[in-house]
């Protein structure tokens, strides 16, 4: 029984994750590079073809509307009913389950994604209103198998426990670090991140990770 161990079906922590970690942890030169890999635009992943969007050749079913979204650099087409929120479309229609549902009411931040670079609560946003928007989810942060500096910093600082709020924390952190209207002090970061609840209470490490990632990113996205 030497079959490849697939975490998605068998559970557990894997070699893949570990190798990823070594690769990225070992890449201490990343920050010094003039054009860091992670600073490339989301279009970098456009070449990747999604496994196939859940859209039929025929017209949308009655009551459904067909919309195009640019998700993590990939053009996606999906039929949505008006009452479908972006969170559920990402998770249930597009298979991007990295974005989490913690309350479904805008009260926890677990569903935070970037829309045209801005952090929003995807649970309160009608999917149909996002025609042609650029949406970045947690799945869209890695570049060429390397974690984004914020993801990397979260790992090194153990800025999570259960991991459930983590996607939202990271997406908010990316937005915070790219928003020059938000101050750089610990207090400013804490305030700006306060819409992302971490019930495990890993807040101290999250703050450390965000501030550390700021240094790594040196102004890059």
């Amino acid at each position: 029984m030497t079959e490849y161990f697939d975490p998605k079906t068998q559970g557990g922590a894997t070699s893949k994750s570990r190798r990823n970690f070594l690769k990225t942890v070992g890449a201490s030169g990343v920050a010094a590079a003039s054009t860091p890999l992670w600073a490339q635009t989301t279009q970098a992943r456009a070449a990747e073809t999604p496994e196939g969007d859940p859209v039929k050749a025929s017209a949308p079913a009655p009551g459904m509307s067909r919309i195009q979204l640019n998700v993590n650099g990939v053009e996606r087409t999906v039929d949505v009913a008006p009452q479908m929120v972006l969170l559920d479309v990402l998770r249930n229609e597009l298979g991007l389950t990295g974005t989490k549902k913690g309350c479904d009411q805008g009260q926890c931040g677990a569903c935070t994604v970037l829309v045209n670079g801005q952090a929003i609560n995807s649970c309160l946003s009608l999917a149909i209103s996002h025609q042609s928007d650029e949406i970045t989810t947690i799945e869209g942060l890695e570049r060429d198998g390397e974690l984004h500096p914020v993801q990397q910093a979260f790992w090194e600082h153990d800025a999570f426990q259960c991991g459930y709020c983590t996607s939202g924390q990271i997406m908010s952190a990316v937005a915070v670090l790219n928003d020059d209207r938000i101050g750089q002090s610990d207090a400013a970061v804490r305030e700006a991140m306060s819409g992302n609840i971490c019930r495990c209470g890993a807040y101290k490490n999250i703050l450390a990770a965000v501030q550390d990632a700021r240094k790594t990113m040196k102004g890059g996205v």
Binding site: G106, G109, T112, Q118, A119, I120, N121, L124, S125, S172, A175, V176, I182, E191, A192, M193, S194, G195, N196
Partner: peptide, 12 residues
Amino acid sequence: LLSGASTGLRNM
């Protein structure tokens, strides 16, 4: 405004 809601909600 900045005392209300959260960054994500204020963006919306």
